[in-house]
Design a protein around this nucleic acid. Structure first.
Lengths: 337, 337
DNA sequence: AAAGTGTAAGCAAACGTTTGCGGAAAACAG
DNA sequence: CTGTTTTCCGCAAACGTTTGCTTACACTTT
């Protein structure tokens, strides 16, 4: 059990040559003769030599590791995004450190700190809903660790990001409802911190404008994403004199909660009230009354795109080049059931 | 952008003392005088000194990283397990490397290899459904990297594992169905690789024995967990002369697929046929016809337990002690809706 | 014959930190 | 004023790898 793993030094000692020669031989360096190169490779294979990566990490100042900080893994959106991230990382022979903030700023900070200590080569992040500032991410600039935000992107300058164009599909979603005859459409939005660049709302308003419908402020309510919060917000809409007949809702999870609650209140879905939502998560396939439509945000593609961007930044950094801030916006798509 | 991070050497140079003194001062080593200690700490704070972890990892032969290999993150079971794993890891100031095998043996092997190269201090794994051997895990013994399996545990000796007692709750589940009057109960099981120690089936049989019911082999069918596979298996059951009136099903995802399909076939759930399942995943709350009961497997607790076990192994390793193989079995619980 | 060219390999430093050992100075006991 | 202990700190090696520079030799070329 107490095995000493073979090292370059060991190989050198046995072959009576220097460590540098062994290193170069293993790397097929041209200035090593064929005979010695063969001898080295042969012995290395026999001893089952494997380079000590920690030593290499240390020497090269690279760890071939990227950090991933996101709110949670429960939402299928994020677990799908990871697939994209992991696939690209694997292609580059990288591996992924993961951390969930659980929508808690302090925890997010701790995670970023921890990843910095582990000297990750880059970070991909989707911020928590309680993240009011991003100093902890900005700090990473001092350590030359590039950061790419995705999906939940902070409203700040000088950042790299990948996100989805929710404006166009929001317009489309609301227009779709209007065309189906809905005149009063509620908007059940998320917590303020996630509405910084409120594309959903902007799209909602734009669609109303286009169709000369007034925007009634009382139709816009917020949830903190908890079940209770969603219930309250939904109640607020239903207590209105003139109830909405359709609701645009922050995401599928909120929508499922709302629908569940609505049914408890004996409302008939798609008659008394119908829903259009965001995320298009697969679980909605199993429910009896899913949202009528949902905006697909292509989490896998976002993950891929964010990771590719990150690798470009890492490469630029290695080449000591300056990288301009990139903010990639992918398309979304309204999926009608 | 081209900042040199401060090092111990740098501090030593500025203070005209040796690097070893600085190191000891920062670690509150008793043999350092108060004056120098203070001076060191002051300057370290001013320079914003942070130890280079990669150097420490290298020196200490520890990375404060654990690797997590699991089939996927889509299943809420696994994402819940991660929460437990992450929480315990965080308490120990560890961080988690993640990798999904996507039920592919080759990918699982690659992940384990990669984690070994990154010199993780330990590995937690839930094997893929295509994992027919565990050599790649056994290899880790040569590198002194302890491995703890959880939930999907290979049927092998000389391993550490944490899993759930599904036998008792399977007996309970089937008995519950029998008491409700069901005489023909189908069992929709998973792929053979995941049935090595078939606690579910054993419990199913035991319950039948206890109640003097015959076990009809034709009532036992398998799915590869894909939607198609589940449909086929379900069809097999429904084509029987004497159909089952209840089905014990591998897990909630399979069950949801089966129920979805059954409804397409105009069967009335809970009348023509009802389901009892495993996992008790939260999404079942949202569906119209969830399984009547489901066996809660406490993924969070399994994650916690597996991680605690892993840390015990890591500590033992550090103390150069021999650790006996532990196979922890947690309780499961039949949750009736 | 002198200078140049090419090939193959070694030397030593470097990355940042930790730690066993040893030693000088200070404090103390006699 | 010695001899002993205590206090404080430095030296140097070590962890495994990479890399710029140098060296040694043999072979060409003027």
């Amino acid at each position: 059990m107490e095995k000493k793993l073979p090292t370059i030094k060991e190989i050198a000692r046995r072959l009576n040559i220097s460590a540098s020669t062994v290193s170069r031989a293993l790397h097929d360096h041209p200035s090593i003769g064929l005979r010695t190169k063969m001898a080295v490779k042969k012995l290395a294979a026999e001893l089952n030599y494997e380079p000590n990566q920690t030593a290499i990490f240390f020497k090269q100042r690279k760890t071939f590791t990227i950090g991933l900080v996101l709110p949670n893994l429960r939402e299928e959106f994020f677990s799908a995004a990871i697939n994209g991230i992991e696939d690209v990382a694997m292609d580059h022979n990288y591996i992924v450190l993961i951390g969930q903030s659980h929508d808690d700023l302090a925890r997010e900070q701790k995670l970023v700190e921890s990843m910095k200590n582990h000297r990750v080569d880059g970070i991909i992040a989707s911020i928590s809903s309680s993240t009011t500032h991003i100093e902890h991410f900005e700090q990473m600039k001092n350590y030359d660790i590039p950061v790419v935000f995705f999906d939940r992107v902070p409203d700040a300058r000088d950042i790299h990001s990948v996100s989805c164009n929710l404006y166009d599909s929001s317009v489309e979603a609301v227009e779709w409802l209007i065309k189906k005859g809905h005149k009063r459409i509620g908007y059940l939005q998320g917590p303020p911190t996630l509405n910084m660049k409120n594309e959903r709302l902007d799209g909602y308003i734009e669609a109303h404008k286009k169709h000369k419908l007034p925007v009634d402020e009382s139709l816009i309510v917020s949830t903190d994403l908890s079940v209770e919060g969603t219930k309250k917000a939904f109640d607020a809409l239903m207590q209105l004199k003139k109830r909405p007949t359709a609701i645009l809702s922050f995401n599928d999870y909120v929508t499922l909660d709302a629908i569940h609650y609505a049914r408890q209140k004996k409302l008939t879905i798609n008659k008394d009230v119908c829903f259009v939502s965001y995320a298009n998560v697969p679980v909605t396939q199993y429910v009896e009354y899913p949202p009528l439509a949902s905006v697909e945000q292509f989490p896998y593609d976002q993950g891929v795109s964010a990771t590719e961007l990150l690798f470009r930044l890492i490469d630029k950094k290695t080449a000591r080049q300056e990288a301009p801030y990139e903010n990639i916006v992918l398309k979304s798509e309204l999926i009608i059931r």
